[in-house]
Design a protein around this nucleic acid. Structure first.
Lengths: 144, 144
DNA sequence: TTTAATTCGGATAAATTTATCCGAATTAAA
DNA sequence: TTTAATTCGGATAAATTTATCCGAATTAAA
């Protein structure tokens, strides 16, 4: 569904959001440990998210990553997915045709758009804050 | 969503099904041309589908691939996807956790299973025959 | 029996994704 | 001013997926 990079990106962002709610900044090393992801690869992904203004990075000792508190409720999963995987989830044809639309569809087109629209809707309406709540009370996990 | 191999697999199978309805057998070369897929790679995929008894292969001149007429209505997309991509679509965690279930879920688990169950349902209820109808009347396409 | 058209199957190669390495730049604290 | 902890960014490497190559096996027709 999502690329590995995107999976790590979502998990990392949720972890940063959770700590940012308490005003705590977290380092790359700690993030990778806490979400069980490869350190250097995670670094690339965080850079990408920082460039897209989804998270903030701070250099130097005591540096790390954080998210502005007032943005946590407004950042949606779709922004992370788009920053890392691009619009492939929205655009591409389910059967891999170069072009595929309602006028000249692949055989699966109609059934496919229904499901993809649900996915799109879910990503666009789910905020970091919403997903953070379960983590906060120990009901959900970013590592297993 | 699906791997490239699976996309080619579905397209090839639908093309074979369409011709098999008229009792016509089709060669690898023709399939690759008609669905615009790489010949040798498509060969591997068709072998896999033949081993899984989804399609029949016939060697020698006048050989090729076909599907028993009476199976076309009962073969579901899910069988093709499972033969090629395995159960990854059904099992894996949306955020890539090694394990993820209702008891110890990732933050996205509940929202994810909803969408994935829709996808599963769609794949399990959509038959080759159903998708063949649009192709037959030129309403849908396997190549663009 | 011979020929030629096809699928089969194993060995590779190319492309993409995932992951690592390491020096440079930054910056807080001693 | 120096030190050390951190992110940044470019160059690679490893793993996986996608794709190609080619001889062997099969088999219908001449």
């Amino acid at each position: 569904m999502f690329s590995k990079a995107c999976e790590y990106g979502i998990r990392a962002t949720l972890h940063i959001a959770l700590l940012s709610m308490d005003g705590v900044r977290v380092s790359l090393k700690d993030i990778a440990r806490d979400i069980d992801s490869p350190v250097a690869f995670t670094a690339k992904i965080l850079q990408q998210l920082a460039r897209n203004n989804i998270i903030d990075s701070v250099k130097g000792p005591v540096g790390g990553f954080e998210i502005q508190k007032d943005k946590i409720a407004s950042i949606k999963l779709s922004q992370i997915v788009f920053a890392i995987d691009g619009d492939s989830i929205y655009r591409g044809c389910g059967l891999g045709l170069k072009e595929c639309n309602a006028l000249e569809p692949c055989p699966l087109h109609e059934k496919f758009v229904l499901i993809r629209n649900d996915l799109k809707e879910m990503l666009e309406t789910t905020s970091l804050y919403e997903l953070t709540k379960g983590l906060d009370v120990g009901l959900t996990f970013l590592k297993r």
